[in-house]
Amino acid sequence: MTHADPVEIERKFLVKRLPDLARARCYTVRQGYCTHPDDSISMRLRQKSDQLFLTVKTGEGPVRSEREIPIEAEQFNVLWPATTGRRIEKKRWIGPLGNGHLFELDIFCGAHQPLQMVEVEFDTLEDAEAFTPPDWFGREVSTDKAYRNKSIALWGVPQQPMSV
């Protein structure tokens, strides 16, 4: 990864219990993967409410390169069939954590229920490492490939305990 690459630094956790969502906003996300989970590059189509995106991610762990571009409905509709069998749908809640960070809480729908995960994005790896998760966060799954959205889309919810 070069310094010119847009970088995503995040930590991801299972959810021990739902927080107060009064100050959070919610939207529906539907996404499908054009690539297989074992591919070194991930290409994803995402619909966030009425916005459509094509995203390419590379790398492993909490720091990865991410490029996302908005696309038109016609482009989305041409590519969407390529994601058959590799799709997820979820409700995403975004809200303040009170320490300058935002949480992104994903409540999965359909075949992926009752999975709930929360992630926090950071500006630097040092910020990510210094982060102390609130008590409603469960076990960290940032480096567990089974909890990547593209793995869940293909193989379903991991059969491991989903709390703490």
Score class of each variant (00 low, 15 high):
2 T>H: 14
3 H>R: 08
3 H>M: 03
5 D>W: 05
6 P>Y: 11
7 V>H: 13
9 I>A: 10
10 E>V: 02
11 R>G: 08
13 F>S: 03
13 F>L: 00
15 V>S: 02
16 K>R: 14
16 K>P: 11
17 R>F: 13
18 L>Y: 12
19 P>I: 00
20 D>P: 04
25 R>I: 12
26 C>P: 10
27 Y>F: 14
29 V>Y: 10
29 V>S: 14
31 Q>D: 12
31 Q>T: 04
31 Q>M: 06
32 G>C: 08
32 G>N: 07
35 T>A: 02
35 T>F: 12
36 H>E: 09
37 P>N: 04
39 D>A: 03
39 D>H: 05
39 D>T: 04
41 I>W: 15
42 S>V: 08
43 M>V: 12
43 M>K: 10
45 L>I: 04
47 Q>P: 11
48 K>W: 03
49 S>N: 12
51 Q>A: 14
51 Q>K: 11
52 L>T: 07
54 L>R: 09
55 T>E: 06
58 T>R: 11
58 T>D: 12
59 G>V: 01
60 E>V: 01
61 G>T: 01
62 P>F: 01
63 V>C: 06
63 V>G: 07
63 V>I: 03
63 V>L: 03
68 E>I: 08
69 I>E: 14
71 I>F: 15
71 I>E: 10
73 A>Y: 14
73 A>K: 12
76 F>C: 03
77 N>D: 15
78 V>H: 15
80 W>N: 09
83 T>K: 11
87 R>M: 07
88 I>K: 03
92 R>H: 05
93 W>D: 10
95 G>Y: 15
96 P>S: 04
96 P>F: 05
97 L>Q: 08
97 L>H: 10
97 L>C: 10
100 G>I: 03
101 H>W: 09
101 H>P: 07
103 F>T: 05
104 E>M: 12
105 L>E: 07
106 D>Y: 01
106 D>M: 00
107 I>H: 06
107 I>V: 08
107 I>A: 07
108 F>L: 00
108 F>K: 01
110 G>Q: 08
110 G>W: 07
114 P>E: 09
115 L>E: 11
117 M>Y: 05
120 V>A: 02
122 F>T: 01
124 T>H: 09
127 D>G: 09
131 F>G: 01
132 T>V: 15
134 P>T: 05
134 P>M: 04
134 P>F: 10
135 D>C: 11
136 W>N: 03
138 G>P: 12
140 E>Y: 12
140 E>G: 13
141 V>G: 02
142 S>T: 07
146 A>V: 06
146 A>R: 14
150 K>E: 08
151 S>P: 03
155 W>N: 15
155 W>C: 14
157 V>Y: 11
159 Q>M: 10
160 Q>D: 13
160 Q>G: 08
161 P>F: 03
164 V>T: 15
